[in-house]
Design a protein around this nucleic acid. Structure first.
Lengths: 117, 117
DNA sequence: TCGACATATGAGCAAGCGTTCAGATGTCGC
DNA sequence: GCGACATCTGAACGCTTGCTCATATGTCGA
């Protein structure tokens, strides 16, 4: 046991609400269907709900629920046109997060210019 | 509806097992206690289980379970010395993942040299 | 204005996940 | 070798979470 190290680690800990929010963001990416949905938007650019449902293989209702969550966390953005709702990624962090995640599972060392292509 | 876009998005979709694994990695980071644990190792360097338990505020048993998970996914690495087990981060992707996540929740635009400090 | 369609929302249920307790393994000092 | 300690493991309970069904809102064509 090393009380000093414990104390300094505790002192360097971010605010609880930051940790909470951080965990929530990663939680959004921890669900395969939601991941498929995000990757679809990453590749396809902008798509309407029914197309996203077709790609992700889930009911439109489930997709709508998922998109609401992602919207609340500024991961996706809506553009409404008549009765269609077009969604696209709202933020470039997500793209980098996915690239980094892929680098991890393939055990590719981190390059400074982040993998991707 | 745009069948072509759907088809091309489906074609560009990674293998199901890649998506699964990717989601699992993010799932590891989606739990606040586990997140605290990881951040503790990020700041504190190398710590034994009892110290990690003290920092994360959970029982050693829970910490041990969590560490096992993280170990299985190459997020942490053990070094055993007698009856103590010292853990440290095994991989630099995690650090970047956390930095990126923090950038997201604070709405900081992505810099090429990743924010952080 | 009326019916059809696209999306959004609420309630309820099933499954996955993390915690805890209890017990096992292994190492050190005597 | 024996007792104490650090860590690990297995089983079970409770909570969270995402799905589906049913329904509401809103928009377009006739």
């Amino acid at each position: 046991m090393d009380p000093e190290r414990v104390a300094s680690a505790l002192a360097a800990m971010p605010a609880p609400e930051s940790i909470e929010e951080l965990a929530q963001i990663f939680g959004l990416l921890s669900d395969p269907p939601r991941m498929r949905l995000i990757i679809a938007l990453l590749r396809g650019g902008e798509m309407c709900v029914c197309d996203i449902a077709a790609v992700s293989g889930h009911r439109e209702s489930a997709v709508s629920h998922a998109l609401r969550l992602l919207r609340a966390h500024h991961v996706v953005r809506v553009r409404r046109s008549g009765r269609l709702a077009y969604y696209r990624l709202d933020d470039s962090h997500v793209r980098m997060l996915l690239d980094l995640g892929l680098s991890h599972i393939t055990h590719v060392p981190v390059a400074h210019s982040s993998a991707a292509h």
